[in-house]
Design a protein around this nucleic acid. Structure first.
Length: 547
RNA sequence: AGACUCGUGGUGUAAUGGUUAGCACAUCAGGUUUUGAUCCUGAGAGAUAAGGUUCGAUCCCUUCCGGGUCUACCA
């Protein structure tokens, strides 16, 4: 999809302004900085589309930067998964970077800070440091180590790096302002000791930089012009700028914050995703009920639809909750154009055409997709016995029910017009078979088939059936914004996955994983890519009011 | 309580110091249709409040009100 809208979001406005003031276009560079401790979800997609979209528009580049400053939480397996997801979304990054690429430089700069009296080693335990920091509503108090000689800090920092300290025995702190109203400026920690193996630098380091100390400097080293992040980092911007200013380089990246994506009826918080996955509420990261990119992909969402969605939601600084229906509308719009229309009956009820010859089989042509001529046609068999949906029959029609009932006519899609004549009922009241007669002159395509019939039914021949397994996914929570609630699990829907078997037309015998279909009058389905057998995952139901 | 920040229909998001505030999704109604889908048409629905600046304010300023973030050796 190509977007040619005139209006630009506030971030692009800032960029445009920078350009107007003389910032060279070719120095524009963006970055997407995931932490390799989980899979990407649609919230990340918003950021990815923003950064890569901007880059595309201005012919600039995006670095993919793994924010690997915390080896206790990060794992290498996520790196490839993240790269794979970004590629799937359709974007190509310029440089693949790691925050750990900058460790050496960060260490040196830290030394420089100490020498200039802008940082010191604090040897107090964590809880004391926290207490001294106080709360946002009262000033903090200085650490007794704040005024220790530069020389001492220098020696200590070296020792920390050389492994002479245990975890928690010391940290490097920036000397800023313990009385600042911004907690981030109350002598934030720059380096802490972590005696673990880093997934990339292995055992080279015993000290690891904190996010704030690593991020802006990585931006600087990579020459990122505009560093876009979510709103919760607004309070970090003064620190971001303080660090950069004190490194004393002229060109600095600019941090701009925007509101992260929230979607109704789903969870996006990493913590919550971990819980439902680890505790077995869902299968894995690629469970189609999740809003992870892998989950959405498996459910049948296309990269185009996700990009389209990210474009539709816009960029601003307001907290927002986007209705899930907007996402669904994006995928419907695309699937409507590309999905092959087929007939599948999911809740079968047998129908016998009384006046149809016993051994006759006819094959009718059916369009694969009337939205696109080039998708071609296929043939569908019909014999005396077939299946229709149980919901498509009512003994006696009501005012709003114009499907099959006794004495009423409906059309069998691509075949004949039939009229209901009777039905067989069990003693329990359960209808087990319907009988009908067909209008022999009403074959689809013929002149006499053009009569106006109120309803067209999908159906599947009873002899030539193919067993179909579908997975239908419902909302995971009975709560509009589960992400906003701490006790979201109380609202977990334990029946969110329904395995439904049905009958499909023979055409479906040779489907391939990942192919998209529209089961007519039911919904869009996609062939599961993980399962060894053929399983149709329901992507989204059709927009409908009565069925 | 403090700092920072946000406030446009139900939900998102635009434009604008000046005739009827646009678009999308959602909702409702009608039309087309061999999918109650798609497609087409239409309708309802919006600036928290009070001051000020101005000939004129949704837009600029002040105050109020309401929401969010911040008290990690996470990111």
């Amino acid at each position: 999809m190509i977007y040619t809208n005139i209006s630009i979001n506030f971030i692009e406005e800032i960029i445009q302004e920078d350009i107007n003031k003389g910032f060279p276009k070719k120095k524009l560079r963006f970055r997407f900085p995931p932490e390799p401790n989980g899979y990407l979800h649609i919230g990340h997609a918003k950021s990815i589309c923003l950064n890569f979209g901007l880059a595309k528009k201005y012919k600039a580049f995006v670095n993919l930067r793994f924010d690997d400053t915390n080896p206790t939480k990060e794992e290498n397996i996520y790196v490839n998964a993240i790269k794979n997801d970004i590629q799937w979304l359709g974007f190509i990054w310029d440089k693949e970077c790691y925050a750990s690429d900058c460790f050496e430089k960060l260490y040196k700069w830290a030394f420089q800070f100490i020498k200039e009296g802008k940082a010191y080693i604090d040897e107090q335990p964590q809880d004391i440091i926290l207490k001294q920091r106080k709360t946002p509503f009262e000033p903090g108090i200085d650490s007794p180590y704040r005024t220790r000689p530069v020389r001492e800090s220098l020696v200590l920092f070296k020792k920390m790096k050389d492994g002479k300290f245990e975890e928690g025995e010391g940290v490097l702190r920036a000397k800023i302002n313990m009385k600042s109203a911004n907690m981030n400026l109350r002598d934030p920690i720059m380096f802490r000791i972590l005696k673990v193996i880093h997934q990339k630098t292995k055992n080279k380091w015993d000290v690891y930089p904190i996010y704030d100390w690593a991020h802006g400097q990585s931006d600087f080293i990579e020459k990122i012009s505009h560093s876009l992040c979510s709103l919760e980092f607004e309070n970090h911007r003064p620190l971001y700028e303080w660090y950069l200013k004190n490194i004393k380089k002229k060109e600095r990246s600019k941090q701009i914050e925007f509101a992260r994506l929230n979607i109704s009826d789903t969870i996006m918080s990493k913590r919550k995703l971990y819980i439902v996955i680890k505790d077995g509420f869902v299968e894995d990261w690629d469970d189609p009920r999740l809003s992870s990119l892998r989950g959405l992909r498996r459910k049948g969402y296309t990269p185009e639809s996700i990009r389209d969605f990210c474009h539709r939601i816009g960029i601003s600084k307001r907290d927002n909750v986007i209705n899930l229906k907007l996402l669904e509308s994006s995928i419907r719009e695309q699937l409507n154009k590309i999905a092959i229309r087929v007939m599948v009956v999911l809740n079968p009820l047998k129908l016998v055409i009384e006046n149809y010859p016993e051994d006759k089989i006819e094959w009718f042509p059916a369009e694969n997709n009337q939205e696109s001529q080039k998708s071609g046609k296929r043939k569908i068999p019909l014999s005396k016995k077939l299946y229709i949906e149980r919901e498509d029959f009512l003994e006696k029609a009501t005012k709003t029910f114009h499907r099959l009932s006794i004495g009423k006519e409906v059309r069998l899609k691509n075949a004949y017009i039939i009229k209901g004549t009777g039905f067989l009922k069990e003693s329990t009241g359960n209808i087990i078979e319907i009988s009908a007669v067909y209008d022999t002159k009403s074959q689809s395509g013929s002149e006499s088939s053009r009569r106006k019939i109120k309803c067209t039914l999908h159906w599947v021949d009873a002899i030539q059936t193919l067993d179909i397994e579908t997975r239908q996914y419902e909302l995971l929570f009975s709560l509009e914004v589960p992400d906003a609630k701490k006790y979201f699990l109380r609202f977990f829907n334990h029946h969110s996955l329904k395995i439904v078997h049905g009958y499909g037309e023979p055409f479906l015998r040779k489907v391939r994983p990942g192919e998209f279909f529209q089961f007519q009058r039911i919904g869009y389905f996609c062939v599961d890519q993980k399962s060894s057998s053929i399983i149709f995952n329901r992507t989204v139901i059709l927009r409908q009011s009565h069925l």
